[in-house]
Amino acid sequence: MNRSRRINGVVSALILAAFLLFLLFPLYWMLLTSFKDNSVLFKLPPEWWPSNPVTSHYEKLFADKVFLTYYRNSLLVSFCTTAVTLLASTFAGYGFSRFQFRFKSLAMMSILSTQMLPVVSLLIALYTMYNNYGLLNNRGGLVIALTTSCLPFSIWMIKVFFDGIPIDLEESAKIDGASRFGILLRIVLPLTKPGLFSIGIYSFILSWDDFLYSITLINQDALRSLNAGIAIRYIGELSYDWSSIMTVCVTSIVPISLLFLFFQKYMVSGLTAGAVKG
């Protein structure tokens, strides 16, 4: 018994190591590449640790001030999207959880179905509308577009979460004469904090990941977001300048990873709570 448990432990340690290798090695390789000079980059066998690390790729990158603008735009847009998504999806999710109405499942299905088509096939119609409403080259417009791509799953996840909160509390508050909004804001929402965290993180990452919306709806350098900026500078016509590409990749993920490490306490518990209920 004891021995088989030890074998189990060793096996699961090995499996865990394999997982970590798969998930983390590419990141290490990215980081390493960004510190290699082109003269050693393509050498085989490769250098597992740079014999002569160079920072020239970083210097070149940061000499181009526009990248700081891209970061700022991306952060701003992602935060705004998260905030709007949280607001709209909490309300809608509460409605779907607490009220029975005709065509409810049809409505829910329609909401989900808006996420089923890829953005590429909607580009022309989307652009035409944005043009008509003067929302092009406007970060607010981009926030609206990204919000709608986050909303359906967020509504669904938060609805599942609300479903798990007993309704008794709300009923007793109602008897005490609290208004419906009062109940939602003061009684239900505080209980939902972990759920809000999980959809917040979900929407933040989704909007941080966006490429097609931002490249279509925004074409001024000063308003561009990071992914579009990376594509335009580094997935170009002429060559794969791998060390420069990896450098910009590293710098683009460091701030957001730090943010996540900072929030990790909330995150794990947030995701924990958000996913389970129901």
Binding site: L23, M30, I205, D209, F211, C249, S252, I256
Partner: peptide
């Protein structure tokens, strides 16, 4: 926490990597 990092990496960067 560290296993979460690939998730925050934008798809286009993942593709290049």
């Amino acid at each position: 926490t560290v296993v979460l990092i690939p998730w925050v990496i934008p798809t286009i960067i993942g593709a290049l990597l």
